[in-house]
Nucleic acid binder design. Structure first.
Lengths: 221, 221, 221, 221
DNA sequence: AATGAATGAGCATTCATTCAT
DNA sequence: AATGAATGAATGCTCATTCAT
């Protein structure tokens, strides 16, 4: 750190109250421009290559302007995933209303998620690297994602679509399934760090496995 | 300094073979000290924070010594996972000889893997971040891991322990299961970036799910 | 740091135009301060000893500031001679207008050149080492110098002041004379790498030789 | 400097007296191998790129062995030119015995020098850069060269081949002519830092100019 | 004597952050 | 509020020199 004076806090406080509504709107717009630019830069160069200079250049604002909207690079990193991730969760949430049964739910959730990642190719990297560069945001995002997933599973359970698992067990399963899907994408769906969709047969295997597991005793009936 | 013409390589080119066995041993020892130090540093600060200065300082050698054993930082990054990962794979491979059945295999593999990560707490981060900082090594490691896993699954299939999946499907499932386990560890087994083991009930849920999947039709029989 | 992907250029790319004239002036001033400092450092330590740290320290700017004005050390090296050399050529060009005859021209050109080198004692080294450290700039400078010299010689030839040499021969002679003068300075005019002027009798010998050459057949008339 | 103990001198002394004649011969041979290797390296990379590693590698001795034969890199630099330059001077000296007249002398000296540089392509760079990297050796070499040249000129003068110049004037002229020739080579005879000979017409112009100078009064007779 | 491993000071370059305008 | 110039700590890498074997 360069200057040792404690004026940083003071400055941040100052800008909390824009004087007019127009100013507030402009503030919000620039902040979003910076966040979206950061998303793109992370998608291309990773968090490690997400320098302030690159972000401000892409967002078409001056280098110094950045610090009027974020207190530090870390502050930006901590803000990117919540902002960009919320819309992803929202879209997935919409897509899984009123499923026919559990497998219909699984398929729609997976496909929607996948499509979103294909259409927002930086998102996968923003998400996976966040574990490292914005751990708090990552955990929060995972919490939200798992919570939503768990809710869906509970609903399916109440409709008798799935076997008896306790609430806590369902949460555990949600984590596993998110991990399984992430690794499928990572292994079969990436091209140059960007998601390129996934071969249909991988999705079928996923669904088949999720439905029945590995063991074959049910074949014996 | 710049020098009028390229000055690189002169030293690397001529790296001579050590004359005595003692020297060769010492060479190897320092190389391993550097690799282990790098593992620890990555575990604590990530690849991005794995500066040569940190590694050499931890390994108790001079900064310049590093370049007698690695040609560059990337060379180190590319070497860490193969070196440290090979022993992990070896240990897991040993642990899964002659399983009673598929669930026995799964449990032993998972537990052994988990124990290894607990005992080498930096390994998890070395592995997950490698995707980004040492992609070739990561892919090779994943290939090896998935190949081994797939072999085990095939053996189980031939013993009638698991449902009929094609060879390629088994590979896909191996990827999924590794992902599922990784995310379980990430969510329930980490403390301050280091693996701290995993509650027993998580493992049970994992096994239960792997055995039967989600749907409950088999309960109806 | 290494970063997963190339991180260069981000800053250089976006170097914006200064907004006010005052800023532009300050920019230019610092650039010149750096160039002049570089000239002095090269004069004292040679290009090989012309580290960015030395230059910025002498120019009283921060180390990092250097890269706001030059893209690299080589960029600086390539800029020093053109900047400092242009003024030298300009001054010599001025000094040789309307000479009485060829020997008057020679004398004035030599003396002016010499005085410039005395007053800018680092210039000699900047020039001679450029052949090695900034070859393109050196060649361009030599081209300009030889071209100007050749022009003067042609003018003298058209005024019947000198013997019949072809255009190409005059260019060759220009090269020779620049070499002869450089070596005179190097041998009789240097003190601690800086030009300290030249004893008058050396200049007389130079002129006498240039006028008549070595052979004495003209004494026989 | 690293260690502050004053043992360097002691060590150097020690090796001054090899015990047997065979040892002395071997010492001398390795020293020459190092010097010749240094010449080649300088020819290719310049003094600045002449690292100890490169020299010892080319000379096929261990890195540390270097310091048994030279006290430092500077010591090597100071030794290269005297060693390699002496043979050049010797050969030129041989070539100019009993010239017909001054122009015959000039031509033979120039051609011999040129041929030597073509056949030992590293020599030119060793020589020109020495001014910078081994100033004492450079000055000594120039002294020797100029002295020899001056002696020749005096002999020509005594044979009435050249105009009346004083001894000191002849030395000055020797300097000039060496400079003129060097610049001719530099401009018209280099390819990739190595001397490739010189077009014949350049040599003719040189000789014509050396004979008569620039002015044309002798045409008027 | 000969070897080559070890040392650490030095270098060019990058970039988060601050600050004058 | 907005700008972009300025700062300086940190990084990867090189290499002359020393030293244990």
């Amino acid at each position: 750190m360069a200057g040792a004076n404690g004026t940083k806090q003071a400055r941040q406080e100052q800008r909390k109250r824009p004087v007019t509504a127009a100013q507030a709107r402009r503030n919000e717009e620039i902040r979003m421009r910076l966040l979206r630019a950061a998303g793109k830069v992370i998608g291309k160069y990773g968090y490690a290559g997400c320098s302030i200079a690159r972000v401000t250049s892409l967002a078409r604002v001056a280098h110094g302007t950045f610090y009027l909207h974020f207190s530090s690079q870390q502050d930006l990193f901590d803000s990117v995933l919540p902002t960009l991730g919320a819309s992803m969760l929202h879209i997935i949430g919409q897509a899984i209303h009123n499923p026919k049964d559990i497998m219909d739910l699984e398929q729609r959730a997976f496909m929607t998620n996948l499509n979103y990642l294909v259409e927002n190719p930086y998102m996968f990297r923003v998400l996976t690297e966040a574990e490292l560069y914005a751990p708090a945001a990552f955990e929060k995002h995972m919490d939200a994602m798992i919570a939503g997933y768990t809710r869906s599973l509970k609903r399916s359970r109440s409709l008798q679509h799935i076997a008896n698992f306790s609430d806590e067990e369902l949460e555990t399963i949600a984590s596993m399934l998110i991990g399984a899907r992430t690794y499928l994408v990572m292994r079969y769906g990436l091209e140059k760090q960007a998601v390129k969709s996934l071969p249909a047969e991988k999705i079928e295997v996923y669904l088949k496995f999720v439905a029945h597991g590995l063991t074959n005793h049910f074949f014996k009936t």
